[in-house]
Design a protein around this nucleic acid. Structure first.
Lengths: 216, 216
DNA sequence: GAATTAACCTACTCCGGAGTAACCTTACGC
DNA sequence: GCGTAAGGTTACTCCGGAGTAGGTTAATTC
């Protein structure tokens, strides 16, 4: 009888698929503002407007839940980048588009980014998932750099490419982190800044120039 | 009677100053391999070869202890950098030396670095300490960039300098993280890689060159 | 329109780990 | 040589929060 009271739309008894997404949304918000350990399942359930056993019934343990968050947000992030990059464009254009895709995602999904980045390295069961995601991104970037190198007819050792990719990804993360705390900043502006910082240097490298210490 | 048994040097009853350092050493090791939350005071006490109440007596609560670790390692890190940089050298030389100092520290104190970096952003009481440390490093780097800019007779907006400093610090952290897991790598080599990656680009920027998207 | 299933809740159990009370014991100052 | 402070311990308390047992009500199915 209560449920059919006129006007009160009774949000109850939603199908599982819908509830699961609501729970994931809530979990991402709570994990992002508390961190994994400080987040409690009670708070997540509360944020989702549901009781705790439902969370366990649908998404499993706290670890499982966090994993699900990481996977969902990680997939979205990767897709943002990959969709933006496109095939068969000049390397600098690809890098530019990739950065725009990346910073665009961070700007639009700050909580998702916080979940992915700010838990980074604890020795958790899910640390592997995050490392794998990061490794895939580094791999994509390294691939772009390799392509740029070979296009120039030059060649480079893999170690150096990987290191450059790490540097670039680290720089992007660092700026993204700053961006996440500065909502007024335009993500494209961040992308342009990093592009300037990295590409001009990369181009010099591609042309074989090296910086040398002037003293031993 | 037991303590005076011949040959067995009875490590007991050490003065407070010594025990405190042992405890901090142990805490840094445990925090670095477990992360803040997964580390237990029991394990830290055990690692230090002492009982738990002694840790509380000397260093206070778990938060206090972690703070003490962060402060000690952070001070050491900052000193490594500052000592290496030196005054009144050309900007590129300063950057080079600063990077060597930084990567040298990481290579020599992997656990200390892990404590500082891998806990980075949780909403902990000590998050402020870490943020402050990072902010100081960013400030130092931004100062070097500013100096380089004015030496060239150019000028740059503060926002752009800060952003470049963030990028550089992020890139350094990312490579340091990789370095921490690759003991065979020479820290100076990492420093040289990053120097090449960043300085050549920075020089271009100083000369007023900008990368422009070729398409809208 | 009964039977079954899916959505949902209250009210627990249980455990790890932070922090402490209360009590020993060695060193050494006088 | 003895009093006392500093170094040290065992054996607890207590609580937050993960995870669950068991039951209720609304939608489907036939």
């Amino acid at each position: 009888m209560l449920a059919s009271v006129q006007g009160r739309p009774s949000f109850k008894r939603l199908p599982r698929a819908v509830r699961e997404q609501q729970m994931l949304d809530a979990a991402v918000r709570v994990f992002s503002r508390r961190g994994f350990h400080e987040a409690s399942m009670d708070e997540i359930a509360d944020e989702a407007g549901i009781s705790k056993p439902m969370v366990y019934a649908y998404l499993g343990s706290k670890d499982d839940l966090f994993r699900a968050c990481v996977n969902r947000e990680g997939t979205r992030l990767l897709e943002s980048i990959v969709a933006a990059v496109g095939d068969d464009l000049p390397a600098d254009e690809q890098l530019w588009r990739g950065l725009r895709g990346f910073f665009g995602f961070v700007g639009a999904h700050r909580e998702g980014w916080a979940v992915l980045y700010r838990q980074a390295k604890s020795r958790q069961p899910f640390a592997g998932d995050l490392a794998a995601l990061r490794a895939r991104i580094v791999e994509v970037v390294a691939g772009m750099l390799r392509k740029a190198v070979t296009q120039q007819g030059a060649d480079a050792r893999d170690q150096d490419l990987i290191a450059s990719a790490y540097a670039l990804v680290g720089a992007a993360e660092s700026i993204a982190d700053w961006l996440a705390d500065h909502p007024e900043e335009d993500p494209d502006r961040s992308a342009a800044r990093l592009m300037n910082f990295s590409w001009l240097g990369a181009r010099q490298l591609l042309q074989g120039e090296l910086w040398q210490p002037s003293s031993a």
